[in-house]
Design a protein around this nucleic acid. Structure first.
Lengths: 195, 195
DNA sequence: TTGGTAACTGAACAATCGTTCATATCCAAG
DNA sequence: CTTGGATATGAACGATTGTTCAGTTACCAA
């Protein structure tokens, strides 16, 4: 027996990545076997290798796709006129984007150590690029006298950590809507940068 | 051959935990084998089972010890008179404690999903207890009119995430001393809570 | 000096791992 | 109707996994 009726690669490929995303997020990259992923897709383990070179590439693809989407989405985001507007835009964007894809966020933060050196460097560069976007906003705000910061790099890391942290506790259908959460986080960010 | 000269269990036990801590933090629980831990200690894999019931217990012990130490250290910390003093004490304590044991912190945050349900519940309870300490401070500050918060639970999570984030970028011997870092984080926390 | 026990080895267990490959089936194009 | 490439199976590969255990050694108390 081989190849079931009506199966197509345009379907199976995305399903492999979707299954890997869910399973990696839930159990961790090292704890998930190729056979588990295959079972989730409804296929034998060998068939996965039609869609990925190996397990490492599967992880790397998920992470790079996530980072690419993050950077591309931020570029498209309206940023307002002042640095303070841009900071608000960044805060709300970051929360919205991260709450929309908790699995990918989880993987991008937790599985860095399971990347090969080369792949790690690539992802790290993209992360630095994203951090640089926030730093640029803070620097502009500093120079315009809108913000009061003693260390831009530190403030940038603190803000990102605070915003990303929303993923650890927010649950859909909970006490607060996403909008309300974003409002309150923006209040805190604004206070933290002295504005 | 068995039992090398001059070896003692009071020595080997802690060495097993120390090796596990380092290796789990570096490569992740699932990616580290009992044989790797044994090699680091300088012993055969079977000998590890004189010091731990199984691999899961090794992870759980590390995490529970870390959380116990965290809670005990906070109890002993001087907290000042006002809620604002207590918040400053908490912020500085959190940063100092976490920067002193990056491996344990990393494990406590990243390996929750590798705990059995029962062990997870135990660690989660301790984490909740620690979060509760901060919430109590915020609530007191709110009632005393020292702080301006729209949601105590949310503010608590945001502050902890921000403070813990220092571990992701701080490197010993870098541009800023631990003292300077704590000063700047406290500025940001104070601003975030509107004080 | 002897005996007992704590500490450890080294081999073995079944299970599972990532990956490869010969083979089979399906579908579309000629 | 034939053919060829795309899609999948299922068995197999050697390596490694967590864990157990009978045997061996080093040490200490008597």
């Amino acid at each position: 027996m081989a190849r079931k009726t009506g199966s197509h690669s345009e379907i199976t490929g995305p399903r492999v990545r979707a299954a890997a995303l869910t399973l990696f997020a839930r159990h961790g990259f090292a704890a998930v076997s190729m056979r588990q992923i295959a079972r989730e897709v409804g296929v034998q383990a060998g068939a996965l290798y039609l869609y990925t070179k190996d397990k490492q590439s599967l992880l790397f693809d998920l992470m790079r796709t996530h980072m690419d989407e993050l950077l591309a989405a931020w570029v498209d985001e309206p940023k307002g006129d002042t640095a303070l507007d841009a900071l608000e835009a960044f805060s709300r964007f970051h929360i919205r984007f991260h709450l929309e894809r908790p699995d990918a966020v989880f993987i991008a933060y937790m599985e860095l150590r399971n990347l090969t050196d080369e792949n790690f460097a690539a992802i790290e560069a993209l992360r630095r690029q994203y951090e640089g976007e926030l730093e640029a906003i803070l620097r502009a705000g500093q120079e315009a006298g809108e913000l009061d910061l003693s260390d831009i790099r530190l403030s940038s890391m603190a803000i990102i950590a605070m915003l990303t942290g929303v993923n650890t506790w927010y649950r859909e259908g909970g006490r607060l809507s996403r909008e309300a959460v974003a409002d309150r986080y923006w209040d805190m960010v604004r206070g933290a940068v002295g504005a």
